[in-house]
């Protein structure tokens, strides 16, 4: 993927520690079990369609890990769905995840390729036909039928180099993979 010994231009700073990432790659090649991560979220129903989910711990590098603080997310539906709108909808959180993942990837790839970023903005849209979730038409799927991400990137690079950054970030994105490929999901009652 990347050259083994990249020439890192010290003047380029996107705030990504590429050296640490490349060292991690080397280390994990020797200890693949450390590369198994489990991410967690804990959800509490509040009222109606409003729920509150917290994220704090995860497992990786063979041990329990903790974010530096507990993050809380309000989830609800908007007034047009006859709900209280206490937070974004679940599907909007999916867009948040996709945007965050692709943008992190762009920064990392740009750093590795010695490209200074000045601004990276994305508009993320997912379209769906709510006849699916309302059970009105079995032919209509519940989820997004189309997701679009439009990047506006200002960087010391040609348009082709910027397009290559965006392409490479998709290739290595967890959330892009989650949205474009089927995933085994099990939901049980404890």
């Amino acid at each position: 993927m990347q050259p083994a010994t990249p020439i890192i231009d010290q003047t380029i700073d996107n705030g990504v520690n590429v050296t640490a990432l490349l060292e991690a790659r080397e280390a994990l090649a020797q200890a693949p079990e450390a590369a198994r991560f489990t991410w967690r979220a804990h959800c509490d129903w509040v009222r109606g369609t409003h729920s509150r989910t917290t994220v704090e711990s995860y497992h990786g590098l063979c041990e329990e890990q903790r974010h530096k603080s507990r993050f809380t997310f309000e989830v609800d539906h908007p007034k047009v769905f006859a709900a209280e709108d206490q937070g974004p909808t679940p599907v909007e959180y999916v867009l948040v995840g996709l945007a965050g993942c692709l943008t992190a990837g762009i920064a990392a790839v740009a750093q590795n390729r010695g490209i200074q970023l000045r601004s990276v903005k994305a508009r993320v849209e997912g379209s769906m036909d709510i006849q699916g979730i309302l059970g009105m038409d079995p032919e209509v799927r519940n989820g997004f039928d189309d997701v679009r991400v439009i990047y506006e990137i200002d960087a010391d690079a040609s348009r082709t180099e910027i397009e290559a950054l965006v392409a490479q970030s998709q290739k290595r994105s967890a959330v892009y993979d989650l949205l474009t490929n089927p995933t085994q999901v099990r939901v049980e009652v404890a």
Binding site: V147, E163, A167, Y176, L179, T180, N181
Partner: peptide, 9 residues
């Protein structure tokens, strides 16, 4: 997979 556009690009 929904990644045809990415692979084509």
């Amino acid at each position: 997979a929904g990644s045809l556009a990415m692979h084509a690009a």
